[in-house]
């Protein structure tokens, strides 16, 4: 067979187009291939989740911040002192803001202004993961939505994607704003996004998350949803439970018990 230059270019072009069909299809088809990981199988047997028992939480003395302080201390979360550049992994908001869909006007108990603990919901179908252009954030098989600070380019698209406002951005070098540095956990540089990681580094050592450990009222319950006798499963049994914006289809794994 004889080729002139044009013919060669045409055939090459068509071949390239043909070869790109399959990867192209994979991008747009719904299957999100998990990152190949040797730990995948053992991790897939677990599904970490947390339940927040609001009644117990509200029985603590007013302004209790034990869980938040523990979290922020252990993870070197800076306190910048302004709302503008605030960085937070866990925080509280009044009940009526967290669950705007709940009818509170005529309900007898007045818990409109009571604080509700908020953190990353570690969604089963996390929107933030889809938007990240570098896979700096991804979902581990045990359900933890991870954040790789080494890879984040700081585009903040994940923040735009998260409907819960769980992500914070480092507007400046955070180190000078950390009161006491915990050498066991890295700090971050300016220009990357960070969020709650369900204390993945503690789970690896067989410990429970810092906030759960710090709560004196035992209002935070943590465990493996795939184990029928786990604490979190027991806590959820026969109770009215809420999630934040379940209608968005993100399948959050932080439950609120009232």
């Amino acid at each position: 067979m004889q080729f002139d230059r044009r013919g060669f270019l045409k055939i090459t072009g068509l071949t390239l187009l043909g070869l790109s069909a399959k990867p192209g299809w994979e991008v747009f088809s719904k299957i999100d291939q998990p990152e190949p990981s040797p730990m995948a199988e053992s991790l897939a047997k677990i599904r970490w989740a947390m339940a927040v028992d609001l009644k117990k939480c509200w029985s603590a003395k007013e302004g209790c911040r034990d869980c938040i302080d523990a979290c922020h201390r252990i993870h070197n979360v800076p306190n910048l002192g302004t709302l503008k550049e605030e960085i937070k992994w866990t925080w509280t908001e009044p009940y009526e803001k967290v669950f705007p869909e709940h009818e509170l006007e005529y309900s007898e108990e007045n818990h409109r202004d009571k604080p509700v603990l908020l953190l990353c919901n570690q969604c089963d179908d996390p929107p933030c993961v889809k938007y990240c252009p570098t896979r700096a954030t991804w979902r581990r098989e045990d359900g933890i939505v991870m954040m790789d600070f080494h890879r984040c380019i700081g585009c903040r698209y994940c923040m735009a994607g998260c409907p819960y406002g769980s992500r914070s951005f480092n507007w400046r070098d955070p180190r000078p704003f950390i009161k006491k540095i915990n050498p066991e956990y890295p700090t971050r540089t300016r220009g990357v996004v960070e969020k709650c990681n369900f204390c993945v580094e503690r789970l690896a050592q067989g410990l429970i998350p810092a906030c759960v450990e710090a709560c004196k009222e035992k209002a935070l319950i943590f465990g493996d949803l795939k184990k029928p006798d786990s604490e979190v499963r027991k806590a959820l049994q026969n109770r009215v439970i809420y999630q934040r914006h379940p209608e968005l289809g993100t399948k959050p794994k932080v439950y609120y018990i009232l």
Binding site: K84, R172, R190
Partner: peptide, 10 residues
């Protein structure tokens, strides 16, 4: 100094 010099916020 980082993006803190802009008016952008969390």
């Amino acid at each position: 100094t980082g993006l803190g010099v802009t008016g952008l916020s969390r």
